[in-house]
Design a protein around this nucleic acid. Sequence first.
DNA 1: ATAAAACATGCATTGGATGAATGCAAAGGG
DNA 2: CCCTTTGCATTCATCCAATGCATGTTTTAT
Lengths: 312, 312
Amino acid sequence: MFYILYMHQTNVKNVDLNLLKALDALLETESVSKAAVLVNLSQPAMSRALNRLQHALKDPLLVRSGRGMVLTPRAEALRAPVREALAQVSSVFTPKVFDPAKAQDHFRIMAPDYLAQTLLPPVLGQLVNLAPGVQIDIENLSASGVQQMCEGHISLGFGVVNDGPVLENVASQALFQDRQVCLMRKGHPLAAKTLSLEDYAGATHALLSITGKGGGRIDDILNEHGLKRTIALRVAHFMTISAVIAPTDLIITVPEMLAAQVMTEDLELVAPPKELGMPHFSVSQIWHQRFTKDPAHQWLRRMIKSACLVQS
Amino acid sequence: MFYILYMHQTNVKNVDLNLLKALDALLETESVSKAAVLVNLSQPAMSRALNRLQHALKDPLLVRSGRGMVLTPRAEALRAPVREALAQVSSVFTPKVFDPAKAQDHFRIMAPDYLAQTLLPPVLGQLVNLAPGVQIDIENLSASGVQQMCEGHISLGFGVVNDGPVLENVASQALFQDRQVCLMRKGHPLAAKTLSLEDYAGATHALLSITGKGGGRIDDILNEHGLKRTIALRVAHFMTISAVIAPTDLIITVPEMLAAQVMTEDLELVAPPKELGMPHFSVSQIWHQRFTKDPAHQWLRRMIKSACLVQS
DNA sequence: ATAAAACATGCATTGGATGAATGCAAAGGG
DNA sequence: CCCTTTGCATTCATCCAATGCATGTTTTAT
């Protein structure tokens, strides 16, 4: 099979394919000078193009007949194939307009589970209505998923660009702003007053971490104040937060939107100490560069961005 | 329709179609240097071809990913269309092999009526067996037919190239040799002895002529000998020869093959005077230049030539 | 840290396509 | 018959865009 393909390529290897344009014009007009006008060449240039075609095709194609020319049978037989070839070539160079209603694209989307289960469902409900043929797989953020993102195997991801692993060859677009907040059980001793840095450091912490890392920035700041916190528990899935925080004295620092998802009447939300200096951060959609100009991908990104504007 | 076609052409008007070859190689190898090898360019030249393709297609096509490249979705979608376009282009530049058994060609053949009714039927019987889909129209030689031959509307003709009207833009191939002979009624006074030039000139002549002209060469030679013949009758169709010669003293000078077709026991065949210096002449098949390289036409010509070799 | 792999870019070269001018042939008209 | 017009082919000079060599940059592997 590969060999056949190779032979196929060899066949036009030494052929100037731009001659196709001249050939089409010659077949249509049966005249050198008229064809020249049609493709914006001078008559002598078209005469020479005909000469080159005659050699390439080993056929006179157009034969002198008095003042004009007449097509050979080979030339006449070539009308349709040449036109079809040019149509094929033209379609290669003509960008296709993306039509969601007819699209059959398949997207793999990777998101932190709290976004996967909160932000995306309403967006996707809308997508399903507009683009019924489009298939979307949602996958939870994972360490191997981040690698696949960098290799271009994941269509779209969500996360904080400046936090977490360094992402290569990707582009991103901010969707909405978020901030870190502290969650603790209702009636926790620290819940009734403004949380100080010493109290924060002295508390026993749970950490939400997918990759087994994270939180280093908070610990750096505590270090700068000569403080150190104890991380007693690492949680990999946001749904377990309520179960481990509500019945204990553990506190956990998470994005506010995540906190909103796990909030129960057994939990209390407290602002973190101002000394931590934690600014708002952007949650972005992130994708590999190869998808930047893809019309389908662009459409999906626009949909998601719009949905975030509505919600925020 | 024409307007649509024109727009279609404009679409690739400014596109270097030779980029198609580079594009196919890039899509296949997903590598600039490998594609370069495949199409016999240097790596920098292929890199620049990719650059031009990126602009033509407004898509990165291949995106850096570490040491290598990865295809954009647009590029992946282009694999099949590019291959198909190149297949179409290749078929344009690949001569088709003529297969008689499958051919559906239509030939218009023009011949003097004595050849049409004598030489061609056995040939055509064979053609019908070998190429059942081929359609052949036989037309008698006519003045307007000669004009159509020169304009390329007649596929093939038969005649004597150096005799008769001047034919433009045609090619020819000798089929067999013939000579002129005299036909006269049985018992004609000139039939019993060797025909002298004076006797030939003194006889009353009939002339076989399709165009109303002809025989001028014989009259020129008689002139050189101070002689002149009387042409009492012009006959346009060879089938009438017997009817006008047998019951009269008219004589007629015709090709030997024609004489063989009209010969009856009421006629006598006599050699013309040697002083007329009439050599053998070639009967040829004649065709317009535009058909010279046509495979179907070449096949037909070969068949007819072969049949003539067998018969002579 | 160094070497290898792979693509991108700078620079000089050149071959082939091009148009203006001209030649040649056929047809049309006076 | 002669002149004009039409239409393609060829000569000649020009030029420009594609090309390869050399080099730069980046990423990966050892």
